[in-house]
Design a protein around this nucleic acid. Structure first.
Lengths: 209, 209
DNA sequence: TCTTACTTGTTAATTTTATAACATGCCTAT
DNA sequence: ATAGGCATGTTATAAAATTAACAAGTAAGA
């Protein structure tokens, strides 16, 4: 079914989130209209996107939530999950360790890293904090393939380099900086400030009420 | 210069982040080539986007970082800042209160809200935790115009409704759910799980190394 | 002084993305 | 049975976004 367009790949994870919510609420069927209105898209877009997923079981009620979720899990690579390492055990790092959403999907934080001596060997949510020096060793031992960066911006690139050297395959970056990574490594940025500024801009463009 | 296209509005905050970083590092000039290569875009895109900002001081070295930042602050509405209230003082909420990036830009969390009695009247980073029942009162008193939702998903819509009733103008939502808000209220979602799944998908699409 | 190598700012072309429209099918209710 | 309403799937159209190409200008160095 050819290559999936970028615009579609951005929406697929949103579909998955919506669908698993609906599934958990007991919905057996979901129509393109429902997805569209909930996500602020048009039904047409949804149906076009689905063409890239192959056939999804459907009836005159819409698409099967079970099957739709299943297909998305396969396509997105969610079903395999991943072992993750988090570098930078600050308040944001802690928040991510405690977040339940990932674990439900087999995305598991296996190890924490920090350079502050006081934190080494601490245990948070059953996960041990290691010295950054042991990154390569632990990544190998725990078969970790995703690195989460929640360090300050000024050391983020250095941490990224270490993760890459340790043969990690994906980086989930929360530091406010544009990391340089080789082509073979996938990068996803979570940009908090830009997201907030984006909100400010929307508000500015909106007639005040 | 007519209405700014959606695709552009998504990039502008990224430009701003990059530019303020460069500015802090002492750079006086930045070219469209530099921005593009750092952000993974083409120089042409940058220059097209700039057309929506009006004239930016430039030389044969590129654009003036000072002026570019200034213009973006005006256009994005960053320069005015905002007073914010955060609802849901969990670990993610705490992380946001402690985050320094917003405060630097006059986006200030003025009040925290939670429904757990044990948290009421606590003080985090000089900010007081109030009962959710007092939301309307405090929002008015502190002239708050942005609400941050870091509650569990199942109460997020209810919280959003309360914020809207309190005449808030923008919602920054971290709960994994698609909120319904009236047209007059701006909404920006931070979607952690979809972001992670997006990373998983990129990794899956990448030849393993 | 002149050449080289960089700029920006535009216009034009291309590609991508989103929307609309409609044929077809299924379920329900009359 | 049959009409109405809502579904998907697909084709065609429209809109939006990206990229390419190039004129014109500026600074620096030989």
């Amino acid at each position: 079914m050819s290559k999936i367009p970028i615009a579609v790949t951005i929406r697929l994870p949103l579909y998955y989130e919506y669908l698993s919510n609906m599934k958990n609420q007991g919905a057996k069927w979901v129509s393109s209209n429902m997805i569209a209105s909930s996500l602020g898209l048009t039904p047409s877009t949804i149906r076009q996107d689905i063409k890239y997923l192959g056939k999804i079981n459907s009836s005159s009620y819409g698409y099967s939530t079970d099957n739709f979720c299943y297909v998305l899990e396969k396509v997105l690579g969610i079903s395999y999950g991943a072992n993750m390492a988090l570098v930078g055990v600050g308040s944001l790092g802690l928040a991510l360790v405690r977040y339940k959403g990932f674990r439900q999907n087999n995305f598991i934080i296996k190890a924490l890293f920090d350079k502050r001596p006081g934190l080494i060997d601490a245990v948070v949510e059953n996960v041990v904090v290691y010295s950054v020096g042991r990154l390569s060793e632990i990544v190998k031992r725990e078969k970790i393939n995703i690195g989460i960066i929640t360090t300050p911006a000024d050391v983020a690139q250095q941490v990224a380099n270490q993760l890459i050297d340790a043969k990690i395959r994906g980086i989930w970056n929360f530091a406010p900086i544009n990391l340089r990574v080789p082509e073979s490594v996938s990068l996803e940025n979570v940009t908090l400030c830009p997201s907030l500024f984006s909100l400010a801009f929307k508000m500015k463009s909106m007639p005040s009420r």
